[in-house]
Computed example of a mutant assay.
Amino acid sequence: MNCLSWNCRGLGNHQRVPELSDLVKAKGPKVIFLMETWKKKSYLERLRCRLKYGNMFIIPRRNLGGGLALLWSNDLNLHIRTFSPRHIDAVINLGIDDAWRFTGFYGAPEVANREDSWSVLRHLGLQFVLPWVCVGDFNKITRVDEKSGGAVRPEKQMQDFRDCLDVCGLKDLGYLGLPFTWCNRRYNEALVWVRLDRAVATADWILKFPTACLHHLPGSSSDHKPLWLVSDDLQTRFNRAQKPFRFEAIWLKDERCEGVVHSVWDKSSSGDPVSKVLRKVGVC
């Protein structure tokens, strides 16, 4: 797994394309997911050629804003399954035992449309059962400590996002780097930092890529930081045995342990019995 995700807020900025080119050269991602491209197909085709990627799928911009693009290398067996202005869903290694699922996601920035975003994500969660990772700008936080400065986000909005992730069996992969991915850049006024961008995955995807790690990369040309999701076992993952879940006895000494288990196991979940258990274990 080697993926780059970035809300670039308009690729027309003269600094953003060189910065993206430098990131591609340094990280060598097999997949690039871009949000808020703001550009026409002809411009994005020239970008694809400049970055030397063999394949690209585009969700056109709406009026002068929006737009999504997924680029991937020729040596990656990737098939687009579904798409919308909010997502591009793909299967990698379709038809073989090693198949898994990648979704680039862009949540609605408007609070009034936030529930539509979660409806899209819940619908994707019901499509089919494969190890699944979802990366992008969700435009929402799950906890108050994912925001610094500005007004406190309503608890209900955060709970709605957490509930959606739980229903889909998606677990936050965490990150390395600075804790926030977006800044309002009002350095002389009320500065606000928020973790809007993230990667989430199902328990079976995490077992498939146990060393996968999300990096918050430094970036200067956009108000969002690029995300780099990479596994350090790229050459050996096909032969790596899956690690079984192990319960750690020391967890029982934490007074929160029983409450966490009860809160997860008492929630209803869709799917077959094995998938339900895997999701609940992942959430725990």
Rank of each mutant, 00 (worst) to 15 (best):
H123M: 04
D166A: 14
T181I: 02
K140L: 05
H123V: 02
N188V: 11
R186T: 02
L124W: 12
A151L: 11
G169Q: 10
E189V: 00
T181F: 07
V192E: 02
L126C: 04
G174A: 07
M158A: 10
E189C: 00
A151C: 08
C164W: 02
A190E: 06
P179T: 04
R162D: 10
N188K: 14
R186S: 05
L191M: 11
L191K: 15
L165T: 06
T142P: 01
E189Q: 14
D172C: 10
F161A: 05
G149Q: 08
K147D: 00
T142G: 10
D137Q: 05
W132K: 15
P179C: 02
L165V: 07
V152K: 15
V129K: 15
E146Y: 00
G169K: 14
F128K: 15
K147F: 01
H123C: 06
Q157K: 13
C168D: 07
G149M: 06
D166V: 05
W193S: 08
R143A: 09
G169C: 08
V167F: 14
L165K: 14
F128M: 07
E155L: 13
C183G: 05
P154M: 09
E146K: 13
K147T: 06
D163R: 15
N139R: 14
V167R: 15
G149H: 11
G177H: 05
R122Q: 09
V152F: 03
P179L: 00
L176Q: 06
Q127L: 11
R143G: 02
A190F: 01
D145M: 07
W132V: 01
I141D: 00
P131D: 04
F128V: 03
N184V: 10
C183D: 12
P179W: 03
P154S: 13
W132L: 03
L121W: 08
M158G: 02
E155W: 02
L170W: 12
V133Q: 08
D172W: 06
W182D: 00
R185G: 01
D145W: 03
L176S: 07
G177V: 13
V192Q: 10
V167G: 03
A151T: 13
F161D: 11
V167S: 11
F180W: 09
R153P: 00
D160T: 13
D166M: 09
V152I: 13
Q157P: 01
N184M: 04
L126D: 11
R122D: 00
C168M: 08
I141E: 00
D172A: 08
V133N: 04
G177N: 07
T181R: 14
V167T: 13
C168H: 10
N188R: 15
F138K: 14
Y175I: 04
D145P: 02
G174W: 10
W132Y: 06
R186D: 01
W193L: 12
G149A: 05
G169Y: 04
L178K: 15
C183T: 12
K171D: 01
V133L: 06
N188M: 07
C134A: 10
V133E: 00
E189G: 01
D163A: 11
D137K: 12
V152Y: 03
M158R: 15
P179N: 03
T142N: 11
